[in-house]
Simulated scan of single mutants.
Amino acid sequence: MTDDNGVGATARSDSPEQLRILLSVPAHELQAMFPAETRAALDELGEVVEHDPDDLADPAAFRAALAGVQVAITAWGFPRLDAARLADAPDLRFVMHAASSLRALTSDDFWATGIPVSQAGAAMSPAVAELSLAFTMALLRRTHRTDHALRSGGDWWEARLTPRAREIRGSRIGVVGASRTGRDYLELVTALGAEVMVFDPYIPEGDPLRAVQRDLDGLLRDSEVLALHAPATEETRGMLGATELAKLRDGALVVNTARAELLDADALYAEVESGRIDAALDVFEAEPLDDRWRRLPNVLVTPHLGGATVESRRRAGRIVVEEIRRFVGGVPLRYALTRADVERMG
């Protein structure tokens, strides 16, 4: 379940004079990831050609764009690298994914090539952890409920009768998933005095988190706040259904900035609608989200933007440049992933 990775891949170098780099990032993210200084550093590494991912859906356009390209910088919406696409990119030697999940990008055929692949997911971890912290604080302080009460025209004094706010200091927070983001979140809430517990069966021996490791049942029963930071894998999809959610104490708070697939959406909705628990969600089973979530006064919702901050996008661009620099220099890649890593990380 843990999605941290320290794998080093064998980099294949090409000289900067010969290197042709495809930069395929959605237009609305291009400047955010590659401001002038970062773009200048990228240009120093080779000849950079730009193509929006949406324009590459057509096979002929893809073939033309990948002609002579050794390094592809990919992101959301880039075509899946299956056998047909790979045949149209015969010079491809390295894939640098400027986003996080690689599941939609890679295929059996891609892994068979042995082409190294890296990703910039680490850039988003601090941003997602901060949103999770903001959600946690908002739920504890009942900000979502009082805001809804006042904005919907409710009486001032009735809004003040919302269940009494809680402080994060001393709160028992259970975290599902000792991922990069989970660890960043744990660091934040621990610094504010929360009492933490973690469920992740893959925490290695010697890891300090072993001291606060719990089984899932114990975590659910003892948590005042349940924060999800696990990847969506075959093992974790649907891990929290009606039976598991029923183990949460009355008044528990659920924070999900990870993946909607971790939860049974209908079971969560039933619990939140009943008023037994509150939730803050950045991810949904269907996006854009359906109206049922919008109507609930005890749920806080955001449109899947947990990892999208000014700083995270800049970090992603810098990671992209540094990984390509490592590839060119024959230095082990810092964020390289194997097929097993991707299956484990979701």
Results as ranks from 00 to 15, higher is better:
295 R>G: 15
140 L>T: 02
253 L>M: 14
108 D>K: 04
47 E>R: 13
174 G>R: 02
14 D>P: 06
82 D>M: 13
290 D>P: 13
36 A>I: 03
226 L>E: 06
54 D>I: 12
242 A>C: 07
272 V>I: 02
229 H>S: 09
142 R>E: 13
307 G>E: 11
190 T>S: 15
5 N>F: 07
39 R>C: 00
231 P>A: 09
35 P>N: 08
243 T>N: 14
330 G>Q: 01
33 M>R: 07
217 D>E: 15
16 P>H: 09
208 P>I: 12
82 D>L: 07
159 A>I: 12
82 D>V: 02
188 L>C: 01
224 E>K: 07
103 R>V: 15
109 D>N: 01
177 G>C: 01
203 I>D: 08
204 P>M: 03
221 R>E: 15
212 V>I: 10
247 K>P: 05
46 G>H: 02
185 Y>V: 06
7 V>P: 03
61 A>K: 01
241 G>Y: 11
116 P>D: 11
180 R>V: 02
22 L>A: 06
116 P>I: 03
85 R>S: 09
252 A>F: 11
316 A>R: 08
21 I>C: 05
294 R>S: 15
253 L>H: 09
328 V>L: 10
235 E>W: 11
258 A>R: 00
173 I>R: 00
287 E>F: 02
44 E>H: 04
271 E>G: 09
118 S>W: 02
53 P>R: 01
230 A>C: 06
34 F>T: 00
178 A>W: 12
61 A>N: 06
185 Y>P: 08
213 Q>R: 14
107 S>P: 05
273 E>Y: 07
185 Y>Q: 06
63 R>F: 09
232 A>Y: 07
78 F>I: 04
142 R>G: 04
252 A>R: 08
340 A>G: 00
122 A>Y: 13
100 S>P: 05
73 I>W: 10
40 A>F: 03
261 E>K: 13
157 W>I: 08
165 A>I: 00
235 E>F: 12
319 I>L: 14
313 R>E: 13
40 A>V: 08
306 G>T: 09
209 L>V: 12
7 V>K: 12
282 D>R: 11
90 P>Q: 05
211 A>W: 05
251 G>W: 13
14 D>A: 14
3 D>M: 10
16 P>M: 00
190 T>M: 08
13 S>Q: 12
151 R>H: 13
